[in-house]
Simulated scan of single mutants.
Amino acid sequence: MNKLVTLFLALFILSGCSNKQNNAGSNDKKEDGSSQAAELKNILFFGNSLTAGYGLEDPSTQSFPSLIQNKIDSLKLPYRCINAGSSGETTAGGKSRIGWLLKTHIDVFVLELGANDGLRGLPVAQTSANLQAIVDSVKTKYPQARLVLLGMEVPPNMGDAYTTSFRKIFREIAEKNHMSFVPFLLANVAGIPRLNQKDGIHPTAEGAAIVAENVWEELRKVLSK
Rank of each mutant, 00 (worst) to 15 (best):
G33C: 10
G33V: 10
S34N: 14
S35T: 14
Q36G: 09
Q36E: 15
A37V: 06
A37Q: 08
A37M: 11
A37R: 04
A38Q: 12
A38L: 11
A38F: 03
A38P: 06
E39F: 04
L40G: 00
L40C: 01
L40V: 01
K41T: 00
K41Q: 12
K41D: 02
K41F: 03
F45Y: 11
F45G: 01
F46N: 06
G47R: 10
G47V: 01
N48F: 01
S49M: 02
S49L: 01
S49A: 09
S49I: 00
L50S: 06
T51C: 07
T51A: 10
T51D: 04
G53C: 09
G53L: 06
G53T: 06
G53D: 04
Y54H: 13
Y54D: 10
Y54G: 05
G55Q: 12
G55V: 07
G55Y: 07
G55C: 13
L56G: 11
L56N: 07
L56M: 11
E57K: 15
E57S: 15
E57Y: 01
D58A: 14
D58L: 14
D58T: 13
D58V: 13
P59Q: 10
P59K: 12
P59L: 07
T61A: 12
S63H: 05
F64R: 02
P65Y: 05
P65S: 09
P65I: 05
S66Y: 02
L67R: 14
L67S: 07
I68P: 03
Q69K: 04
